[in-house]
Design a protein around this nucleic acid. Structure first.
Lengths: 225, 225
DNA sequence: CCTAGCTTGTAACGAATGTTACAAAACCAG
DNA sequence: CTGGTTTTGTAACATTCGTTACAAGCTAGG
């Protein structure tokens, strides 16, 4: 049955696993293919995550209610992505958002006990799963670092130092002010203002997309702000 | 050899695993016990994490350099805790901080390949590891949510609504203003000011440690700030 | 009861950012 | 090249928070 979905081979969970091996492990566990119509609720925010879910067909979206009751779309999820993968195990394993189908969709559903069996029986799948959730944690750690800077200049200095790995002196900015503003959750004109101030401080020289780091020590001083 | 460290039974990784089972799985993998003197560098920030490390004896600290070159202690780690557990696997698996021994210490060191074997061979250990790193991810997700509020009133409203699960109307605050300020990374007088403003807005009534939610809808309106 | 230490309340002032708006510059497609 | 769209620069004003400081209230121990 899993044979009907060759896309599953491209899932981050099954990278590097041959089709024979995949068939082998799937033949020894229980799993379901669950179908949904368009605009159907797949899971509610706050519901316990009881299974490992992988999207095989269609597309789904994660959405939240804002305080006024309005629905905000967080992201669209396409095959062969897993859903809420970091919430399958753990002490607070609740869906962080509502999951709704955008169109008719099909999900691979594996109960937790069978997911554990799957991981035990194939080390590559286990390693893939560990890589995915560990990378998630690492990404979140970086995001917290960014959000913990009190000032926009601190965020920008951190961003520049990470982009250059403390090496290059000149580099080309690969994000517009708008994109940086969205990434940092700040107002776009404030990005422009911070650029001007950093320029005025003499630590960088920025013209359009070209950035030159003039005083790296000065740039690092923003990291405590 | 692992018998010499009964404390390992209390590690979050080995909860619910009997001593016989533990001996059994450890007899089929390679591992080392590594000893360190006091004030010795165990790992540098940015170094690749190549092994699973569990502290068996002594204590170690995580520390960072601030931009001025000064050392900041992030946390102390005691047995039987693992080190940098969310950084063992994943695409950015580097130590996030320096790790330094506070006193003579001993670490259980398991190469990644052997760690994978350990997990494959005992489902309870596998589940424990998945629970630990998934919980870590869930904690980080909550922290990002908190840090993403633009205002202190938003943070506090979120905190109150989580403490009460949207149910109780009266409750006792279990954290001092100082503790809340530390938790949110803000100034203590600003917490007091936000309390006063929320009081003045008529959404809560707070006196000492007693909190009454007067207008939950109003309280929710802070969530967008 | 008294004292010391901790917590809270409050205020003034400065710093940083958000918001709104408009103009200029840059970019892209026809 | 031209026109339309996007991006950037800038400014004024409002909002929020940080910092510093001091006083009052609370709590625990002797």
């Amino acid at each position: 049955m899993i044979n009907n979905y060759p896309i599953v081979m491209q899932s981050p969970l099954f990278k590097g696993v041959g089709m024979d091996d995949l068939n082998n492990v799937f033949s020894s566990i229980h799993y379901r293919i669950k179908k949904y119509d368009a605009d159907q609720i797949i899971a509610f925010e706050g519901d316990e995550v009881k299974c490992l879910y992988i999207l095989l067909k269609g597309s789904v979206k994660g959405e939240m209610m804002d305080p006024s009751g309005k629905t905000i779309k967080i992201e669209d999820i396409l095959p062969p992505k897993p859903l809420a993968i970091a919430f399958v195990f753990g002490s607070a394993n609740k869906f962080p958002v509502n999951i709704v189908s955008n169109e008719p969709s099909e999900l691979l559903v594996i109960e937790k006990a069978d997911a554990l069996k799957l991981f035990s029986n194939n080390e590559q799948i286990l390693q893939n799963f560990l890589n995915v959730i560990s990378s998630r944690s690492q990404f979140l750690t970086q995001k917290i670092k960014m959000l913990s800077f009190q000032t926009i200049k601190g965020k920008l200095a951190n961003f520049f130092l990470q982009e250059t790995k403390g090496e290059a002196i000149d580099f080309v900015l690969n994000k517009s002010q708008n994109a940086l503003a969205e990434l940092f959750g700040v107002a776009r004109p404030s990005i422009g203002r911070a650029f001007k101030e950093m320029n005025d401080d003499g630590f960088i020289h920025i013209k359009g997309k070209s950035v030159r780091i003039i005083d790296i020590k000065g740039l690092r001083s923003y990291l405590s702000t």
